[in-house]
Each structure stands twice: as C-alpha cells, then as structure tokens.
C-alpha cells in the first residue's frame, strides 16, 4: 500500500493534467484552476518545511561545533533578524522601514555582486573554450570571433560582410542545433512524463521494488 497509493495518486493526477489539455469544458478547466491553486497552498506549507530544514541543519552544525559553524551563526542571525524586523514594523515593505533598508542595502548589493562575478567567469570560461587544441575548438574560436566582431561597430569597419556572417551563424547553424536539441528535449519530456504517469519510472519514489 505504501507504494500503490502514491502510484495511484500520481496516475490519476497525471492523467487528469494530460487530459485537461484536450478538454476546454469549464467543468474540467475550473477543476484544473483549483488544482493549480492547491499548488500555491502546498508551496506555502513547503516553505515552512524548508525553513525548518535550514534551522535544523545549522543548529546541528553549531551544536556539533563544526569547523564552519561561524557561517551557521551568520545564517541563523540573518534569518532571525529579518523575520524580527518584518514583524516589528507593520509596514515593512514601505521605503525607509528597517526591513526594507536591510533588504535594499544588504541583500540586493550582495546578490548584485554575485551576479557580476558572471562577467569574470565568462572570460575565464571563454579562455578555456577557445584554446585551439582540436578542430572543433578551432571552429568554435573562429565562429565566436566572427559573432563577437559582428556585434560591435568595429566589425563593420573591418569588413562589411562580418555582421552578415554573424547573422548567418546565429540564424542557420546555431538555430538548427538549438532546434534539434529542443525537439529532443520536448520528446524526452513527454516520454518521462508518460513513464511516471504509467508507473514505469519510479525513481522519484525511491525506485521499483
């Protein structure tokens, strides 16, 4: 029963979700909307679950005096202080409230810093990818140089055909490869969904017996 009930629930829910795509009748579509609403409710409870998991893990780290427990203190203090500031100030979302000040002056700049690291990582990844050690890497290097030059004004100044070559690379070989991958992805998604609905794929519940 421990396996049959989840499998039956998965089959019924999966079948309903698949069938509703073909049935525009309000009886079915309204039910679909209700189910989507349930998902939001479920998510709200799941966030509680996530917070409990976060607190428990860091609490265990502090209790066990793990080497990196200082980070756990920072995490828990951050969590408690932001929740506290949110409750202390009833209009916490308004500009000037302590919660809002902390969000705008601590979290936003830190996230922006992390995001801006991407530019440096792109440079280091490009350096690794463009080393012309093989034929494929050389082709990649040449294509990348053409595309980069075609995207800036100097490309047109070097040769008028570079922007056109850039567009050709993006619209023909690049797009063809992307569409090929996307067709495979679409079919793979369908197959995976069907296998889960039909109970063939059971890895999500720990695999078959």
């Amino acid at each position: 029963m421990r396996r049959q009930i989840p499998l039956a629930l998965c089959f019924i829910a999966g079948l309903f979700m698949a069938v509703q795509y073909f049935i525009p009748h309000p009886t079915v579509q309204d039910t679909y909307e209700i189910v989507l609403g349930w998902l939001q409710t479920l998510l709200a409870f799941a966030f509680l679950l996530g917070t409990v998991s976060l607190i428990r893990m860091h609490f265990h780290k502090i209790r066990n005096r793990a080497d990196d427990r200082a980070f756990s203190w920072v995490t828990l203090l951050g969590l408690v202080s932001m929740i506290g500031l949110g409750f202390l100030h009833p209009q916490h979302q308004l500009p000037g409230s302590p919660f809002n000040l902390m969000f705008l002056n601590v979290q936003v700049p830190i996230e922006a810093t992390m995001f801006s690291l991407l530019a440096f990582y792109i440079a280091s990844a490009a350096f690794r990818a463009f080393r012309a050690r093989t034929l494929e890497a050389t082709l990649l290097l040449v294509a990348a140089c053409i595309v980069m030059l075609g995207r800036v004004p100097i490309g047109d100044l070097i040769h008028e055909s570079i922007p056109a070559a850039t567009q050709w690379i993006l619209n023909v070989p690049n797009l063809a490869a992307k569409r090929g991958v996307m067709i495979g992805v679409g079919l793979g998604m369908m197959a995976t969904s069907l296998k889960i609905i039909l109970g063939i794929e059971r890895a999500w519940m720990g695999g078959s017996d």
Partner: peptide
C-alpha cells in the same frame, strides 16, 4: 537540505 529560493544567494 534547503538553502534558499533566491538565485544568487
């Protein structure tokens, strides 16, 4: 364990 929903966090 759960870390965060925020992408760069």
């Amino acid at each position: 364990f759960y870390l965060t929903r925020s992408q760069f966090a």
